[in-house]
């Protein structure tokens, strides 16, 4: 009993550490910066190939 606990609890702590690290990594990469726009991104028009960014300077909202 004690032997398995000795192994499993540190293991759970390690997994906790890994989860926290992964979450921090994702936050720093901007994964949670915008939770609304990306879901609609696929539905929007592609930008014009001429790179004419002056057409509508304001972001779609």
């Amino acid at each position: 009993m004690m032997a398995s606990m000795m192994l499993l609890i540190p293991l759970s702590l390690l997994m906790l550490g890994a989860a926290v690290w992964a979450f921090f990594w994702a936050v720093d990469r901007g994964q949670f910066d915008d939770l609304e726009q990306p879901s609609r991104l696929a539905l929007e028009e592609d930008p014009t190939p001429s790179g004419d960014a002056t057409k509508d300077p304001r972001p779609h909202s």
Binding site: L16, A19, V20, F23, F24, V27, D28, F32
Partner: peptide, 13 residues
């Protein structure tokens, strides 16, 4: 916002 998210993430886990 990012810092707040990290704090929440650590506290939640």
């Amino acid at each position: 916002r990012r810092l707040a998210l990290k704090r929440i993430g650590l506290a939640a886990l």
